[in-house]
Nucleic acid binder design. Structure first.
Lengths: 358, 358
DNA sequence: ATTATTTACGTGTGCGCACACGAAATTAGA
DNA sequence: TCTAATTTCGTGTGCGCACACGTAAATAAT
């Protein structure tokens, strides 16, 4: 009653295991009639290959490329995807899968081009990629898929570029949730700032969607008549941010600030130095500088993109596609995690465990 | 340069693979001196068995028992652990692991005793167990571990009972977080209700801890001078709940309600029928009845225990212990998920995907 | 019709390990 | 000292599959 094997199929079809093997692997050298007959039996008995035995026999090893920005310091944002990759790797280690990392400066398109220039996609069986620069990323993806190498994206997506899978977050909805967290308990008829602290104009897509989502919340809740004011501060050092904010604080009656990316800690610092603890502050991502202000209660909520989980799932999907030859969903949108001072430790501890288990 | 194999060790030690095999499996029939010699080599070269080949050769199959309460309707709380078990199973299916479910009426200790009486732990290689009735559960666990069967608990833990692993949540901290969510934006000097709607007094442990956590938040934030009033309503049908709440609403100036378990939807119904949308309501668990009120904004926040993830991790740990013979952490406390109207869909969708992929 | 070429298929080996069986070495028994 | 019992070890086989190789059958070339 156990599972049907190649040899069983061979016997039923009155051929040898070699012929069945050829059919299973779409190799030629099989007469059409025979092929049909065998395929029918495979179908009928719902043959499921024993991938354990397959892996052992083939002795194949796999090579994946994980392409994402540099980890700028030991605990920055891009450390988490790496942890996720390692976690996935630990689970599938028996399959002899090796991973190369290709890291690049997330602020330099030139660096990205230089680094990817040295890559031949054909050296890899699959690629997990966090696209930062839309146009050149699209080209890179095109090269890979042109060479027949599966490509799975995470963190952000590029419109109109065909890929094998995407793992990420619904940016609009996360902004919408930001609106709710902000609004919750805030007096109406006060002013709210939406602060964009992006360093590059390149990958603005999900930043814009976050702002739209945030605004949309207040449009849908007309009882909240808060006044929403956008502030764009490029450049990025603290003094610029402080100056710009100071201006707004004198003009307006600021009751809350929504920062559309992980640089929310700069705003938190401003509030801390100003002693404005009462101002609601909501931003993105679990990075150490922000955690500090979350714990000191200058930041009220952080919305997490679960970068660890994104990369974990990404590598698992590559594995499913490449090794198990299974279909994977075109897109997976992860839950939008809400982090506060009170639950942050569990997210951190979780990651620590993975680090220890290396 | 590839991994060292049994045959390599055998050659180095000047013995046959059979002898190495005996050492590896702690079988007798090996002279002490030889054993030492081989063990030293194993150590020195850090031999890691190829579990792929091992699984293939041994042809072993494994049997796990998953023991938890009945799924009372198609979408109730206990459906989620089942989904988690299935997800884990899908990932490790190549190892021929079968799972039996033992379900019992979570309100009847007699039923639990009856069901477990028919179980011989020795029929199983591992047990994943959600203990509900402390005393008899402890006995059951004792039987299993006495028979040498690893036992991993999830959902709740029993003090003083030795187990092989626990997957769950920090109840105190989740209550503390509930306090924050409640407090956030609520006017001080109003009254808050803490409502206990437990059906059985048996497994009160984490209910009590949740209340303690909640109260602790307000103790630590002395600027919040809200008045906390506990309400215990046993029994459980809606009318009782409505009557008791009505009493409190006339006595007090209720601005928020914290419900310590998943029956928060009963309170939400009361608020809905009363038209009291302004009252903040925080409770537990993603069950359909609550989701409805979450979407209608009578419930502001649900704290999720991630039951799907708990069971998923539980089975994965059993697998690690039993099949891979690896050590597993004594306890894993999962992140405390915050669910709102705005992010609930992603948690639901995620589960849907698993359902579809069956 | 005979040979060369192509197409279609069968056979054999090994991946790394687990385990049954049997053989050799050692010790005990007489 | 010789045999029997026991301990210690080696050998062989197979798990299900992938893949190289070899061979038979069909077709083409001469």
């Amino acid at each position: 009653m156990s599972r049907i094997r190649i040899i069983d199929i061979a016997r039923i079809a009155n051929v040898s295991t070699g012929t069945v093997d050829r059919v299973l692997h779409n190799r030629d050298g099989v007469r059409e009639a025979t092929r049909k007959r065998i395929e029918k039996i495979i179908e009928e008995y719902d043959y499921q290959p024993d991938i354990i035995a397959g892996a052992l026999a083939s002795g194949r090893s796999y090579r994946m490329l994980v392409c994402m920005p540099d980890i700028v310091n030991a605990h920055a944002f891009w450390k988490f995807p790496e942890l996720g990759v390692k976690r996935a790797l630990a689970e599938i280690q028996h399959f002899d899968i090796r991973v190369d990392y290709l890291r690049f400066d997330q602020h330099s398109k030139e660096d990205f081009l230089k680094k990817t220039a040295g890559i031949d996609p054909k050296d890899y069986d699959g690629i997990l990629f966090a696209p930062v620069f839309s146009d050149v990323s699209a080209e890179f993806i095109g090269n890979c898929r042109g060479a027949g190498v599966p490509c799975i994206l995470f963190n952000s997506r590029i419109e109109g570029v065909e890929i094998d899978g995407f793992i990420g977050q619904d940016a609009f909805q996360s902004g919408f949730l930001g609106g709710k967290l902000m609004s919750y308990g805030l007096p109406p008829e006060k002013d709210l700032l939406i602060v964009n602290l992006s360093l590059r104009k390149d990958n603005y897509q999900h930043i814009i969607k976050r702002e739209r989502g945030f605004r949309s919340y207040f449009e849908e809740h007309s009882d909240r008549v808060n006044n929403l004011v956008s502030v764009n501060i490029n450049g990025g050092e603290y003094n610029r941010v402080a100056t710009e904010l100071e201006k707004k604080f004198t003009e307006l009656n600021v009751a809350g600030i929504f920062v559309t990316n992980s640089r929310v800690h700069l705003v938190a610092r401003y509030l801390a130095e100003r002693g404005s603890m009462y101002v609601r502050l909501v931003g993105y991502d679990l990075i150490p500088k922000s955690i500090e202000y979350l714990q000191r209660e200058y930041i009220d909520f952080l919305i997490s993109q679960s970068p660890e989980e994104q990369a974990y799932l990404g590598l698992r999907q590559l594995f499913s596609m490449v090794v198990l030859k299974k279909q994977v969903p075109a897109a997976v949108l992860l839950p939008i995690d809400i982090l506060t001072k009170e639950n942050i430790n569990y997210y951190l501890k979780f990651n620590k465990e993975y680090e220890q288990s290396e």
